[in-house]
Structure formats: C-alpha cells, structure tokens
Amino acid sequence: MVGEIRVAINSDQDIVSARQKGRVVANELGFSSGDATLIATAISELARNIVSYARKGLITIKKVNGHNREGIAVIAADEGPGIPDIRQALRDGFSTSGSLGLGLPGVRRLMDEFEITSQLGKGTTVAVKKWRQ
C-alpha cells in the first residue's frame, strides 16, 4: 500500500465507497476479515456523521506504525458546525440501538484508539486507530 487513501465525502453514496476502500486497506494490512468488518463499519459511521451533520468532509485512511505493531488509522474531518458537548456525544447509549445519536460511542468500541477534536463553527475531526492482532 502506498501512502494514504483519501475519500471526499459529499453524499450518502460516498459513505459506501469510503467503507469499501477501508476494507481493502484493512485486508492489505493483514487484518482478519472480522477486524476488517469492524473497521469498515466504523468508517461507515464516521462518514455518515459527516454527511448528516457537516454535509461534506474528508475521510483519510492510512497505515500506522506503533511500538512493535502495525495498524490502520482513519481520520474523519469536516468543517461543519462542530459538536457543542463532546462529553455528551460520547456518552454511551448502549441500549438505545438505532438511536439518532452520533454513533461515536459505538465507533469507539469498534476501534482501539479514539480521539476527537471539535470547535463550534469550525468543524470536527475524529481520528481512530485499530492495531493488528
């Protein structure tokens, strides 16, 4: 795999293509197909947040090297309205399946590492990582 893959998110169609590309990268990096499904699902959720709340943004998928291990990083960036209360957005609505929330707690569970920065009126960036077993 060379460098990183960027997928511009402008419509719901792009959600599908982002998660498909994510799965391809995950497979190339040697993730199990179970992990590749988790990664693709996380990308789908992140891309959907962009479409729903910011209308457009960018998903970047790349390989990362950690201490003695390799992984995949997914960065979802938008210049949307931002999240007023991050802590609330991360609160786990575990049992309220299919609720209209941001799905961020779920994404956090799907991946190993999760970072979010958001500024009102400026946009939101979510960076997640998963390490290969």
Binding site: E45, G106, R109
Partner: peptide
C-alpha cells in the same frame, strides 16, 4: 462478522 460488528455498535 457483521453480527459481531452490529452488537459492538449496540445494534441488536
């Protein structure tokens, strides 16, 4: 695998 991802997301 999809079922596994779904329950991680809390989608049951």
């Amino acid at each position: 695998e999809v079922a596994f991802a779904m329950v991680q997301l809390g989608l049951t």
